[in-house]
Design a protein around this nucleic acid. Structure first.
Lengths: 340, 340
DNA sequence: GGCCGCACTTGAAATGTTTCACAAGGGTAG
DNA sequence: CTACCCTTGTGAAACATTTCAAGTGCGGCC
């Protein structure tokens, strides 16, 4: 009778000798069906190996049971920690999480968003290539709950969860100056990333406030935030004339810092004595580096969890108002800046 | 007329003055509809901001456009590289990829599989906690295309893609012995992981073949394959009496190796002079460690890509036969074993 | 003029679930 | 005995799409 098909509620109903509606009730409101029938239906389900068809459920209900996170860069563990935080919150709300990766390419990002729209996901969390891109407005206009993670829009037209990057830049530099450094490199790029700009801005602010000469805060731009680019920055650093060469570096993220660390030690520098290094994000590998890395810690999982809560609020609470959540990063001092 | 709803084909049809069927044709077989009508329909779609409802499509078509990968441990970058390979293949086939993470917990794994079944995904790729678990049989019996990644079943009852772990263990030890080591630690666990067993088995085989005393291959079990466990193994290693203490360690994965490396250098050991280290997987951070790590390289992305191709074959080719794909790992020698 | 074939379009059926108004039956209060 | 309620179960409608057999109109050909 099933001739190979996967069984449907109809088959279960037939097998248990009840109506469709009753089977549905067993699944969705078991309290309204008598113990005897319920048992009979459950038995039939087990016998037939029934599995509810989520598409049909969703079609009827008009809403899916999934959230989605579009991450910016799958090679950076930071985003996986954020995703983990989201997943925990999603699990609590009994939702699935769809994880996508734009790999910093706007066209991939758009393709993913398109798919997610088609899937009618309940809400979208995203660390966008460009938080002010117009296709994000489209989403908001469509009424899809949307939260921007680890960035924010200038016009605050949707929720966002981020860290105070300017402050992060400040505490990194304060720490280095406290350690006695007076010539510091600031490494990061591309300039199009708001975070790079803000972290550097924080650095510059403090530098100025401390009355240090602007020339001694050396800006080394990179093309991406990767280990490889960190190494390349290290080479450029080594190429500077000795009297201009910084004794410390503040990297806009930990991957850059790890690359720099590797290149430096490979070239015979002692860290931190010849070159002190501060990273940003405090990914797990920062602490596990052979010279454990001082880093500006972002509450990675917490970021994700908070973002998920915002998106759920937007999805379920009619009185929802957009919020810009801010976390304050902290400096975690480790061996890479500790004077021996 | 739409009163807030998101527009459906029906609305588009009305707006364009055609029937439902025609709108559907514009989307799915544009060649059968005249240029004029097509244009009119497309205009209507754009005006209304129509987005196809994937649930309805899927319900009618009976098949979804998604694959899923259930990874074992989200904190290990290795699995993300595998996922990346799968994603590339999925993208080529115009499919979405659902990424889940079981975090090595069987109950999370089952919960994820349940969900995926409900979603009627086209195929499932999984790095299971236990490849021989009966719930995997269920999937196969249900006819869901299934590929096991980086493990294999003893009964070969479904496709799998893996690396020859015994061989990996062999080349790691061969390399260390070539470098002159005659007392070597083998670090890894828990024993329930087939890979740990096989990598160690390869190590033992070579050790024996070379006629070295069994006692000098020291087994240090760990509770998990994490950086933290690597550090703890390092402490135990340091606690051994000097004349029994190995001069080299083969770790069952790179996270352990990184932990060991960190603990060792922190305790003042010189790597590789006092302690040589070989890891396994060759994750990106292995090369980027401050003492770049010698590692047994798995073709991570390739593994994922091949697995995706197998699952697609099973999903689309009626003549599909289960295959056990094997890749041969290679040793990548770096500073952590190079005698200075 | 009638017929055929072609290019395009239509409308209804089907997919699997949930919901909801309603029915049936049994118990209870009046 | 009746009227009512409560519990339990029913069956049809609705969701948005795709598919397919059938229909429409048109031009050409005999």
């Amino acid at each position: 009778m099933l001739n190979g098909r996967t069984p449907s509620v109809k088959d279960v109903a037939a097998a248990a000798g009840v109506s469709l509606g009753t089977v549905s009730n067993v699944m969705n409101r078991p309290e309204v069906v008598s113990a005897r029938t319920r048992e009979r239906v459950e038995r039939a389900m087990a016998d037939l190996g029934f599995v509810r068809n989520e598409s049909a459920r969703q079609l009827r209900a008009g809403t899916s049971r999934t959230l989605a996170y579009v991450m910016l860069d799958g090679t950076n563990p930071f985003f996986h920690d954020v995703a983990q935080g989201i997943e925990l919150a999603a699990e609590d709300a009994d939702l699935s999480l769809f994880i996508c990766n734009s790999n910093s390419r706007p066209e991939r990002e758009e393709a993913h968003l398109d798919r997610l729209l088609q899937q009618r996901v309940q809400g979208i969390l995203i660390t966008p290539v460009n938080p002010d891109a117009p296709h994000l407005d489209d989403l908001a206009r469509r009424g899809v709950p949307l939260v921007i993670v680890d960035r924010r829009r200038v016009d605050e037209s949707c929720c966002s969860v981020a860290v105070d990057d300017v402050h992060g830049g400040r505490i990194a530099i304060e720490h280095l100056v406290e350690q006695g450094h007076t010539r510091v490199a600031v490494i990061g790029g591309p300039e199009s990333l708001g975070q790079v700009r803000e972290r550097r801005q924080g650095a510059r602010e403090v530098w100025e406030e401390l009355g240090l000469p602007a020339d001694d805060l050396v800006h080394l731009p990179t093309e991406a935030m990767t280990v490889a680019e960190g190494r390349s920055a290290g080479e450029r650093l080594a190429g500077l004339p000795a009297r201009r060469r910084p004794t410390a570096a503040f990297c806009a993220n930990d991957l850059l810092a790890l690359g720099l660390l590797q290149q430096g030690t490979g070239a015979g520098l002692r860290v931190p004595d010849d070159l002190a290094i501060v990273g940003f994000d405090d990914i797990e590998f920062a602490a596990a580096a052979a010279v454990p890395l001082t880093s500006v810690r972002q509450p990675r999982q917490e970021l994700g969890r908070a973002a998920a809560q915002l998106v759920l609020d937007e999805a379920t609470n009619p009185l929802h108002e957009h919020q810009q959540l801010f976390f304050t990063p902290e400096l975690v001092a480790r061996a890479s800046t500790r004077r021996s």
